[in-house]
Design a protein around this nucleic acid. Structure first.
Lengths: 202, 202
DNA sequence: CGACACATGTAACACGTTACATGATTTG
DNA sequence: CAAATCATGTAACGTGTTACATGTGTCG
């Protein structure tokens, strides 16, 4: 429901047409979340279906304008007044992956953690570089502020992710009571999993 | 694509039936992301459609088992080997909301930030309490570890969110070059937004 | 002229999610 | 007996997302 409300918010500033909405949306969120133009139109259609926006005539140049309805503005106010729920948070793929990696036998958890860490580290560097550019070149436009905030959110989030990954390694070290005398060479995938699994008991 | 792969990972441990998958999934992710049973069956159907799992006969008690196919195991290996992309990250509703709040006139950004902060703070407390319980009562089961890690991810994430919100306030203070001589009393919502907006120029 | 940005739209799909129907078994 | 849990499944919907079709205007 983010794009819906995002576009609705833009329309609250006054009538806009589709293509314009995309560029304004991207100006605020930067290259982070590129928005397919087609999606603007589908979303616009759905907003109209739900009575939150309405057509607002055409330009002399043929631009098809939409405007927020009274109901749309109410919905928007409600959106801003209500915090996004952090209880029942959106499923996080990384968390699920790690939870599974830890549980399922035969998965090299350390490798998963390390791989992710490298990737997130790289992403963090990119964000930081981008921020440097944004802060030197940028002016005092409101949309520049928005873009900066979004960028910083990504930075904070990624930092937290990396810290968590490091923390996972510590936890994993604690949870290892099986020093099992490993077979000499042949590190990975030594045993072919049995074709017929043991009887499923639970 | 998180649930898909989550279930697939569980099936990699051996054949399971639908209801069982739900309970095992929830054991690892806790009450955080409750999983509607129906969704297990729909997802299972889609996994079968894509050749990643296959029916594996019935129990004497009528339980309908599914098992991962060779292709499914390959897909799973690929999932674990590939970091979840933090470039082109999933759209974050909070970030979008703030970006819009900052941009659209007539929105009390501070109120939005404060409201969110309160909410996230509350969530953080809940998570911390839960973690306390989990650590005193829990044993050394692998699924307990998974659940703990998930919880800690939520904690790290929420902490980062709160820090970011605080940071936003600082940024907002910097970006305020309009001290405008406020009307004495009447704090909130003083001006009715004009019915007819100014001509849209761009 | 050809490439490219501007501009509008549609069709189709994926995944997640909920609500509902249905029945067996257990338990207070 | 009634309520709850276990168990399987289907129908329907919503949002996000992509790919495609189409046309205009501009600029080198």
């Amino acid at each position: 429901m983010s794009i819906r409300h995002g576009l609705l918010a833009l329309l609250d500033q006054g009538p806009r047409y589709g293509y314009q909405l995309r560029s304004e949306f991207e100006a605020r969120t930067g290259a982070t979340w590129p928005l397919n133009v087609g999606q603007v139109y589908t979303t616009l259609g759905r907003l109209e279906r739900d009575g939150l926006v309405a057509p607002h005539g055409e330009d002399d140049e043929g631009h098809v304008y939409y405007a927020a309805t009274e109901q749309g503005r109410a919905e928007l106010r409600h959106w801003f007044d209500t915090p996004v729920p952090r209880t029942n948070p959106p499923r996080d793929e990384l968390a699920i992956k790690l939870a599974m990696a830890v549980t399922v036998p035969g998965v090299d958890v350390e490798a998963v953690v390390q791989g992710q860490r490298r990737h997130s580290m790289k992403a963090l560097q990119d964000y930081t570089r981008l921020k440097g550019q944004a802060m030197t070149s940028g002016g005092q436009e409101r949309s520049d502020l928005a873009w900066l905030l979004v960028l910083e959110q990504l930075i904070f989030q990624t930092e937290a992710e990396i810290r968590w990954l490091d923390h996972c390694e510590t936890r994993l070290a604690q949870f290892r009571p099986e020093p099992e005398p490993a077979p000499p060479a042949e590190a990975a995938a030594p045993a072919v999993p049995p074709k017929t699994r043991r009887r499923v008991r639970f």
